[in-house]
Design a protein around this nucleic acid. Sequence first.
DNA 1: AAAATATGAAGGTCAAAGAAAGTCAAAATG
DNA 2: CATTTTGACTTTCTTTGACCTTCATATTTT
Lengths: 150, 150
Amino acid sequence: MSRISNIIEIFIKELLDESNNLAVEIQRNELADYFNCAPSQINYVLMTRFTVDKGYLIESRRGGGGYIKIVKVNIDKNQYLRMLMEDIGDVIGNMKAEAIIHRLLEKELISEREKRLMLAAISDRSINTPINLKDHIRANILKSMVATIF
Amino acid sequence: MSRISNIIEIFIKELLDESNNLAVEIQRNELADYFNCAPSQINYVLMTRFTVDKGYLIESRRGGGGYIKIVKVNIDKNQYLRMLMEDIGDVIGNMKAEAIIHRLLEKELISEREKRLMLAAISDRSINTPINLKDHIRANILKSMVATIF
DNA sequence: AAAATATGAAGGTCAAAGAAAGTCAAAATG
DNA sequence: CATTTTGACTTTCTTTGACCTTCATATTTT
């Protein structure tokens, strides 16, 4: 008896394979209904199996006509991207984050303007919270941004 | 999975396109009738989709021969950016933030890639904190980023 | 004829109900 | 113990409807 989470994971990955643009839109309740599980189980699957560092971007909308969109970034083909994700980890300080962004520019993976955007986003001034949260949020933001440039 | 609001939004934008992108005049009740919805739904669409930060001005008149006029405006870029900064304020929700970023792309102040970077940075998933902090941090990040494109 | 009033035809507002997705922690499982 | 499952509760976005305001015009009053 394989875990339902695994089944849902596989199901979503199949959907992604079928869609050539590597993005798929689901209805949370519909999917939960289909698999006869709690709707929040879908969130659990997304949170544990479709994270940014695994190369997935999630975007969603509540309310009438709401949806969950799962986008696959092709991380497997980008050894460097995967390394970056690992390097960033769950927590990252400002210095290290800036160093990573500079390296991206050097490697010509981003433009000068994009560098400035990214630096602005992860700056201490932007993330104006207690220090323990700060580095965590910074890691999230940086990983999300890095995922979009590939 | 478009809900009626999205359909009405698209309809009005088509009207605008047909009219050389200048302005278009509608009758609220007529439109509501056409789409089989409550007249106030039209107001909802205008309020959420045709806001100033999206570059629209609404003007209307009640009474016999009343109308609603939707005007697409094009203001000076620097002026627009300054207005945006003010508009963002200290706290901003995800929807509004996304609307602003989309508008920046429309006005060609940012590229498609930059749009994606910015969206990633301000997404709820990046800013993974208690709700009251979230909108505050988002405002900071967005303002910092917008500042870089001046 | 001019002023006052009534009528009906617009559009405006706001709050409640509905429709999704999100969160969090307790319970279950392995 | 770590992972998974469940469900009660929350937040966000949309739809609906009852009631309000404004305006043009028709009608009545002076």
